[in-house]
Design a binder for these strands. Structure first.
Lengths: 188, 188
DNA sequence: TAGGAACCGGAGTTCAGGTTCATCTTATGG
DNA sequence: CCATAAGATGAACCTGAACTCCGGTTCCTA
């Protein structure tokens, strides 16, 4: 826990990366149903090595999800730099969902019963929430989103979409339906 | 498997019901995370008795979910008897979601990775799909739903809503947003 | 380049939870 | 009221998957 630990030995650093990569790929494919032995094998290491780097399966999973949240934050930041508020919003939403589709572990984590744990971790380590809030606000202020739309609603939408990524349903259609409900309409 | 089995002994029939009730309540509260021993205790029986009536945990869970689907079918049938097509649709949607909120096992089953198993079982044993299809069609034909709305979309909506029932999000707001996207609008 | 700390491997341990089965109990038909 | 088959019981068993542990290996520094 001391702040100044000597840097990892070269092989340890390399192996840590191998573990992260293997776990990332397997978790993304099949959620937390993958076994530690499988991850070790895919990484070309022994299980013991996994446990040298991560206290337990949860910790490894948390590291992977943390990574994904960092990527999501980069995404949000990029979207926020887009000129047009509506484009920014759409870019963020689609980028987020596209990434979520490719990562089962992320989806299961956010949909599972022990949320809000993950969101809290994300909030501690990244600015995802703040940036998203800004993007949403910009779109609402510009009159492109219904006036009462808020960041919470972004979560509602993404959760709903992710729930439709398992199975046969067409989540893009679902998002399209939703967008029709949240876009500001001149006619009303 | 023969069609003519002698009726269950009185105590057996009673116990079967006790098991179903206990399992129904516990599964509804906590999904399939409950243990067989817990169910047995709640029912005031030994585990062995559960296994006399149901081959394994899956079978018991299937029985419970089957029950729920029967209730859902009754709901749909009632809604279909409503005069106004839009009221019928709304009644079905809300009834379904209200019931889903009270039953975690049902939600997890329909959201989990091994869907479409459950829907198939439901289709074999009930008319839920057909009736829902009719209700949806009526609302669409009456011009109260956007013309391209189909029964599949009903599934998309319910899955999305159910995904927002775990955690802190407000799924009713979510449904409201969606309805705005789905309703036929004179203005367009 | 030698000493030793850090690291690795993977067979073996542990444990939780589903499932069984030998034994006891009870409903039911005669 | 008995005989007996159906039913109930729960301690013991089994399985699978997370985790440990220590002998062997590798990197690093002086």
């Amino acid at each position: 826990m001391s702040a100044h630990e000597r840097p990892l030995r070269a092989d340890a650093r390399r192996n840590r990366e191998l573990v992260l990569d293997a776990a990332g790929e397997l978790f993304a494919q099949r959620g937390d149903a993958v076994q530690m032995d499988e991850i070790a094998e895919r990484a070309g290491l022994g299980v013991g090595t996994l446990y040298r780097h991560f206290a337990d399966k949860q910790a490894l999973l948390a590291a992977i999800i943390g990574r994904r949240f960092e990527a999501m934050t980069a995404l949000a930041r990029a979207a926020d730099e887009t000129e047009d508020p509506w484009t920014a919003f759409e870019t963020l939403l689609h980028g987020y969902l596209e990434a979520a589709q490719a990562d089962a572990a992320f989806r299961f984590a956010l949909l599972g019963p022990e949320e809000p744990r993950w969101s809290d971790i994300a909030a501690e380590k990244t600015d995802f929430a703040e940036i998203t809030e800004r993007v949403v606000r910009r779109a609402a202020d510009a009159g492109r989103l219904r006036a009462d739309f808020c960041a919470q609603d972004f979560t509602l939408i993404t959760r709903g979409a992710m729930a439709n990524m398992t199975g046969t349903g067409d989540w893009r259609r679902y998002v399209a339906l939703l967008l029709d409900g949240i876009r500001e309409r001149p006619g009303t």
